[in-house]
Simulated scan of single mutants.
Amino acid sequence: MSETGITTDPWEYCLSIPNDPRAVTVSRRTLRLILTLHGLVRRADVAELLAAELVSNAVRHTKGPAALRVRWSAGVLRIGAWDADPAPPEPPVPLEQAVDLEEGRGLALVRACADLWGWQPLAREGNRGKVVWCELATA
């Protein structure tokens, strides 16, 4: 740990989640615990919002299992949601337009709040799929 209490060594967690809307709450609470234990509680509010949007999309738009992936390396927190659908996510609408939508704001919020975001195909445990991810720098 550094003098600020933030873990300097890289780490990674992966939480397998069922296709269940309650998984969003479990993911948020698990992420907050992880960040608190690693001295990153100052980033928890934004990180929880981003994780909730990513996991919610994975659960809402796919039928199979999903996973929350969290990685810390070189001062960057990467949050990702894996799902079993290999199709790319719908492009985010501009945040100004998303405010008036009842749904479909998730990736607009991710794009607005994260330092960087994207997606990539990713197989997990023999299942084809994708991971949608975002990054937050701690500095």
Rank of each mutant, 00 (worst) to 15 (best):
M1W: 09
S2H: 10
T4D: 15
G5M: 07
G5D: 01
T7M: 15
T8D: 03
P10L: 13
E12C: 05
Y13K: 02
Y13V: 05
P18S: 11
D20A: 09
D20H: 14
A23H: 01
V24L: 07
V26T: 10
R29C: 10
R29L: 14
R29S: 11
T30L: 09
T30M: 11
I34L: 14
L35T: 00
T36F: 12
G39R: 07
L40A: 13
V41M: 12
R42N: 03
R42L: 14
R43N: 01
A44V: 00
D45M: 03
D45L: 11
V46T: 03
E48M: 12
L49Q: 08
L49E: 10
A51N: 03
A51P: 07
A52F: 08
E53D: 05
E53G: 06
L54M: 10
V55Y: 02
S56W: 05
S56H: 10
V59D: 14
R60E: 11
T62Q: 00
T62Y: 02
T62W: 08
P65F: 05
P65G: 15
R69W: 03
V70K: 02
V70N: 10
R71M: 11
R71E: 11
R71G: 10
A74P: 02
G75E: 07
V76T: 15
L77K: 04
R78P: 05
I79K: 00
I79Q: 04
I79H: 06
G80Q: 06
G80P: 10
G80H: 03
G80C: 02
D83A: 11
D83E: 14
D83M: 04
P86K: 12
A87Y: 09
A87E: 14
P91W: 01
L95A: 14
L95Q: 09
E96M: 08
V99L: 15
V99K: 13
L101E: 13
G106Q: 01
R111M: 03
R111E: 15
C113A: 13
A114H: 00
D115Y: 09
D115N: 15
W117P: 09
W119R: 06
R124D: 13
E125K: 03
G126E: 11
G126V: 07
N127R: 15
R128V: 11
R128W: 04
G129P: 06
V131Y: 03
V131R: 00
V131C: 00
V131M: 04
W133T: 05
E135L: 08
L136D: 00
A137P: 00
